[in-house]
Design a protein around this nucleic acid. Structure first.
Lengths: 112, 112
DNA sequence: GATATGTGTCAGACTTTTCTGACATACGAC
DNA sequence: GTCGTATGTCAGAAAAGTCTGACACATATC
């Protein structure tokens, strides 16, 4: 996530993912190390479907990474870990990312 | 906005302010230099009330600064400029900011 | 079998954000 | 006065985001 390859879409996705107190807490908790969903939900005091949704958004932005594994006793366990990114934002960086920012009323498809 | 003084509330406010394509465009446009509201609205192709709202959010987060001035011919003109900030975010930085992140279900007032 | 653990997903309600159109003010020029 | 510029604000609609409760599955243990 160096400034050179920071697209407007990636910047927007990252900021949107970080624009929620729950997701900040989740990311902060994963900074210590990987954890699986159900336990993380108990630690943070939130419902599992809700945590699932927030993790999904964080993963879509590339801020966390999940991997489904099989524990020794055979149960499926999904671990999440924080991606070691460093996001840097300044007015100039935002300006540089604008050309790759999707237009709101644009649905792609117009390459005639 | 050095990491040392980045509170959870400030981080959340900044990310929330940046989590919108219009506001990214506004901030990018102001990276070139100051501009007044009505002209900026025409340049960005958005309604003035809408731009006003977005500028308000950017200002609340401390990302832009507005100043109402009197032009030479006596008309009131409000100029906005980008604050020269540099926001840096990483899992560790988020974790460090968590203690100063307001609790969702907290309305202050409970110091009995 | 029943109970515990883990996984994922869905509909619907609720809340927040976004956006428009209309209204208000003030000043200068015709 | 009327027209143009600038400013700010408001109510209400529309869209997006958030959250819960229930459902599904699988595996291990009692």
């Amino acid at each position: 996530m160096e400034p050179e390859e920071l697209t407007g879409a990636a910047l927007l996705a990252a900021c949107s993912a970080l624009a929620n107190p729950h997701r900040l807490r989740i990311l902060g908790a994963l900074a210590d190390g990987r954890q699986y969903v159900s336990l993380l939900a108990r630690q943070l005091g939130m419902s599992r479907p809700l945590l699932h949704m927030h993790l999904q958004k964080l993963q879509s932005a590339g801020l966390v990474k999940g991997s489904l594994e099989l524990s020794e006793d055979g149960r499926a366990v999904k671990y999440f870990e924080a991606v070691p990114f460093t996001l840097q934002v300044s007015p100039q960086i935002v300006k540089a990312a604008l050309p790759t920012l999707p237009v709101p009323g644009d649905h792609g498809k117009e390459t005639d």
